[in-house]
Design a binder for these strands. Structure first.
Length: 331
RNA sequence: AGGCCAGUAGCUCGAAUAGGCAGAGCAUCGGACUCCAAAUCCGAGGGUUGGGGGUUCAAGUCCCUCCUGGCCUGCCA
């Protein structure tokens, strides 16, 4: 049960593929910090994965354990944070159903992500009830733990606002219960993919947290650099170079200044710069690999999720009991 | 439940107004160029044309049937 003065954070990720550097520096690095300061509930959003993967649901299962391994490799500690699996806490589904009763369609249709899909007709396979309603499920996932903060990027603020509106509406209709979680705006360093576009699995331009050195080298060596630097003796511009954002994240500042100087003076070529970056990336990834190896056992992952699920359901069951009371559905 | 339209390479689509060698662009991979990458040029791979049956010397194309998706009409709640 909640201690007085305790501050809570809730967040989740969909198990749809291996995590990459963008996930780490955009999200996970913050999570690892949060687990030191707050009571954290981090969940594998496997039901959410179904919104896009409903046609091949069996593909999701293997990624559940892989996602947890990526988390642990990144430094999440099951002793510090509650790590659990959404679909194993049926209370999320019950609250989703009840919240869906009070959520006006207009709120959902206003969802920028939904509007985008709708207008551009990019993906008609997302024209489902589940996709339209996923912000409600998200609200249920979050609200059920009465968190103080939800870590969000700037672009996800509307989503959280919807969660807050749903909480407000519930409280207004049935009496105060839910707290409106605050946005924990995370400063996430933007990290482009290997080809300069957004790092994304579907672009095939990712460096994965689990990448081995053999996989890493060709990826780094074929990265986009400064397109204006045609020859070795041309001066480069770190500000427009696709490589430099990586140095900002994995290379110490003093070394970075040297790179900046030698690049703009054409003392170093891009190959030199890439060799250096490769070394830094290895330094960064090696401890992750080591930790991953410690957890590379289905039994261990199962045990971690089992323990986390137990803690989560303890919290969720209490809140759901109170939700039913508020509605007069405690038969 | 009935009617209409659609389904072809990973993606977007061609292949005449009565059947005649399954193609292009993008993407992917390889090579040239480049300090590397990008751009550009050259090259390659990739297909049970949704499934099954039929007509024919020959079917992506015509016929039957089934599956999937979309639109319209109806029925039940």
């Amino acid at each position: 049960m909640r201690q007085s003065g305790e501050k809570r954070v809730v967040s989740g990720m969909r198990p749809t593929g291996p995590l990459h550097l963008g996930h780490y520096f955009g999200v996970l690095k913050n999570w690892v910090k949060f687990q030191e300061e707050y009571t954290c509930f981090f969940f594998v959003a496997d039901w959410h994965a179904l919104t896009s993967e409903y046609a091949e649901p069996h593909g999701i299962k293997p990624f559940v354990a892989e996602l947890v391994k990526d988390w642990l490799a990144s430094g999440l500690d099951p002793e510090k944070a509650v790590i659990f699996q959404q679909s194993q806490i049926k209370e999320h589904a019950e609250l989703n159903l009840l919240l869906s009763m009070i959520t006006p369609l207009g709120w959902l249709e206003r969802n920028p992500t939904y509007k985008e899909i709708r207008q551009e007709l990019i993906s008609k396979d997302l024209n489902t009830h589940g996709f339209l309603g996923y912000p409600v499920l998200q609200a249920a996932d979050i609200l059920i733990y009465l968190p103080d903060f939800v870590p969000v990027g700037h672009d996800q603020l509307p989503q959280l606002e919807l969660t807050r509106e749903i909480a407000r509406r519930f409280n207004h209709l049935y009496g105060d219960l839910f707290v409106e979680p605050q946005a924990k705006l995370t400063v996430s360093a933007k990290l482009p993919g290997l080809d300069g576009r957004k790092m994304s699995k579907s672009y095939g331009n990712c460096i994965y947290l689990g990448d081995e050195p053999e996989a890493l080298r060709p990826k780094v060596m074929s990265m986009l650099t400064d397109t204006k630097r045609m020859r070795r003796k041309d001066p480069g511009d770190p500000e427009t170079c696709n490589l430099f954002p990586y140095h900002l994240l994995v290379t110490p500042e003093t070394d970075r200044e040297e790179i900046r100087r030698k690049c703009t003076l054409a003392e170093w070529g891009c190959v030199d710069c890439k060799e250096l970056m490769l070394g830094r990336l290895e330094e960064f990834l090696t401890p992750l690999r080591d930790r991953r190896r410690q957890y590379d056992n289905p039994e261990i992952i199962r045990e971690i999720l089992h323990t986390g699920n137990k803690k989560a359901v303890e919290e969720a069951a209490v809140i759901m009991e109170r939700v039913r009371e508020k509605l007069g559905f405690n038969f």
